[in-house]
Design a protein around this nucleic acid. Structure first.
Length: 343
DNA sequence: AACTCGGGGCA
DNA sequence: TGCCCAGAGTT
């Protein structure tokens, strides 16, 4: 079954209502791919600048394939889910090595690359090449479950299959890339989770949820568990204008990034800062409590108490960095602490 | 099917 | 403060 009138209204709306986003100005599959990975679980406004810098620095898969860990983490700064960047680099290496640096158009081949799931496969190939594949993200789930008043968890069968089937029907009468992007744009700017702007929706008169007067009943997703509150302590040891840092070890959250002594995520490395610092081989005294910083990651909400630390010597083999003049990838929580530090 | 991975922005 | 976001991989 096709829906020409539905697609027509959607297309007309998208033509005049779409936001001017930088990745919509290119058809380069690599640049589009980067944008889709960055946008996974991440807001448009957080991605905009990062994407622009990223594609300037790594204009092709082969360029990113050669990036160091530090360059990778710096390029991904502030976006979170840093594992996405590692998967993308691994995928870029395969493209460079096995496909002569060309992003594969074949759905099975592209979809087999690390970090490319059902959504990303459909989004990149439909936007770059107009391949008729559905790209069902959280926005599309919301828009379509409301339009059709689809009960059940949209991330599970049979709803997943129904969503993909419906989007596939929309592709029959127009360009799949436009349809996919328009569905996402509608979900992002009109059919929002709360207080949707139904008055300006092109599907105002078609939406089963609105006709029932209970739009916010859909999508029927599971509520997230509440975050766990943690308090941890961190010390700022200064030597001139440099600060004592540590590399987060492999296997821990945010591995490879720079953090401050005493702070470990997701749980505190040490509640006893003095003992922790002694373990680093430093002598000195723990100074006063300076300030408190709040930070949240996946399931934790963390209160960080920041103490100063006066050291006698800088110690051998310890990492001292200029926080405001360093190319090394400081973790977000470390940057928060350092930016709030009094002079 | 449940769990893990970040971070920011805003009602 | 609570909630949500252009998901994917692992267990």
């Amino acid at each position: 079954m096709a829906h020409p009138a539905l697609v027509d209204r959607l297309g007309t709306w998208y033509h005049h209502a779409q936001r001017d986003l930088p990745w919509r100005r290119t058809r380069d599959p690599w640049a589009i791919w980067v944008s889709e990975v960055m946008l996974q679980q991440t807001r448009v406004e957080a991605v905009r600048d990062a994407w622009t810098q990223f594609v300037a620095r790594f204009p092709a898969p082969a360029a990113f394939a050669a990036a160091s860990d530090d360059d990778l983490l710096s390029a991904w700064r502030g976006l979170g889910y840093y594992r996405r960047a590692r998967f993308l680099r691994e995928a870029a290496r395969r493209v460079a090595d096995e496909y002569d640096g060309i992003v594969p158009r074949d759905a099975a081949t592209f979809g087999a690359l690390p970090g490319v799931g059902e959504y990303t496969k459909g989004a990149v190939l439909s936007i770059a090449f107009d391949t008729p594949l559905p790209a069902v993200d959280g926005n599309v789930e919301r828009v379509v479950t409301r339009l059709l008043a689809l009960d059940g968890d949209p991330r599970r069968q049979p709803v997943t299959a129904r969503l993909r089937e419906f989007v596939g029907e929309l592709h029959q009468t127009s360009q799949p890339g436009m349809v996919n992007q328009a569905l996402m744009e509608l979900g992002a700017t009109v059919c929002t989770p709360k207080k949707p702007r139904c008055l300006v929706c092109p599907w105002h008169d078609d939406c089963a949820a609105r006709l029932r007067g209970e739009v916010e009943r859909w999508p029927m997703t599971k509520p997230r568990p509440k975050p766990i509150d943690i308090t941890t302590k961190v010390c700022v040891a200064r030597h001139g204008d440099r600060v004592l840092c540590r590399r987060i070890p492999a296997g821990e959250v945010n591995e490879g990034q720079l953090c401050l002594p005493g702070l470990g995520l997701p749980v505190p490395v040490s509640d006893d800062l003095a003992a922790h610092v002694a373990g680093l081989g430093l002598r000195g005294r723990l100074g006063p409590h300076l300030l408190t910083v709040r930070h949240s990651i996946t399931r934790y909400r963390i209160r960080v108490e920041v103490y100063s630390f006066a050291v006698d010597g800088i110690g051998e083999e310890l990492l001292w960095e200029h926080p405001k003049n360093s190319d090394l990838p400081f973790s977000t929580v470390a940057r928060k602490v350092l930016s709030k530090l009094p002079d």
